[in-house]
């Protein structure tokens, strides 16, 4: 039996006296489309930074397809494609050159398909430094999609896209999930999660306060649940 796609085991992250993430236990099976929502400062980006090996938890461990991210980062990254909130790119390369490098590193093909999905085709040979923020995000997304990784971690990766590109990307993500990949999509836009995810995990003040199937919620029920849980958190 294959290991779960993502496992958070008692993960805590402190910045000095500030507790950004507080004892998060979470298991995401393969073939899941999970939305991670929460208010600003809830700990979403910290969770994703730890998941992608950019931050070390103060306590606990994180596994990607059974590989401890912080013991074998390269091994974990082989299973993982990630788009951080502010992706860093080589400004002096074109998107095609950058994606070719990523494809070579991952031993992957499908560069043209990735360009097509993200709508970068016509601009693929321009230098990235000439790109808008949206195009930079598309480039990072295309890089994450290369090689059909088993786990995709996307931090606010869809919200910055234009509507046609967003629709194509959502369809592609759904296709990947149906094929057995796991997508963890972090956003503070509830509607996005409601539209694409099967399961929603809600963070507040670094803790998981809700973990529910989207199908179990009434139409438009996610936002009211979000507000209720937030209120409950505030009331202690």
């Amino acid at each position: 039996m294959s290991a779960p796609a993502i496992v958070f085991e008692g993960v805590r992250k402190d910045y000095g006296r500030v507790r950004a993430v507080d004892r998060v236990d979470l298991t995401l099976p393969r073939g899941a489309f999970v939305g991670l929502i929460g208010h600003n400062g809830a700990g979403k980006s910290t969770c994703l930074a730890m998941l992608t090996g950019l931050l070390r938890p103060s306590e606990g461990r994180i596994l990607v397809c059974g590989v401890d991210v912080h013991i074998d980062p390269r091994g974990a990254l082989r299973h993982l494609g990630a788009v951080p909130e502010n992706p860093a790119l080589f400004d002096h390369l074109s998107a095609r050159e950058f994606l070719q490098f990523v494809a070579d590193v991952r031993g992957a093909s499908g560069l043209d398909a990735a360009l097509e999905i993200t709508g970068l085709g016509e601009d693929a040979d321009r230098l990235i430094r000439e790109y808008s923020q949206g195009m930079r995000r598309k480039t990072a997304l295309a890089a994450a999609l290369l090689g059909e990784p088993e786990v995709l971690v996307l931090d606010e990766a869809i919200n910055g896209l234009d509507p046609p590109s967003a629709a194509v990307v959502k369809a592609e993500l759904r296709r990947r999930v149906d094929a057995g990949a796991t997508v963890l999509l972090s956003t503070h836009v509830v509607e996005t999660v409601e539209a694409v995810a099967d399961r929603v995990v809600m963070l507040a003040h670094g803790r998981v306060v809700a973990d529910v199937d989207v199908a179990s919620l009434p139409p438009g029920g996610m936002e009211s649940m979000f507000l209720e849980r937030m209120q409950a958190e505030r009331d202690g």
Binding site: Y15, G16, G53, L54, R56, H70, P73
Partner: peptide, 18 residues
């Protein structure tokens, strides 16, 4: 790879009030 974690840790410690 480990250097990225250490550098992120240093940044975080500078930015937060230890």
């Amino acid at each position: 790879f480990r250097a990225s974690l250490v550098l992120a840790d240093i940044r975080a410690r500078y930015e937060s009030v230890i």
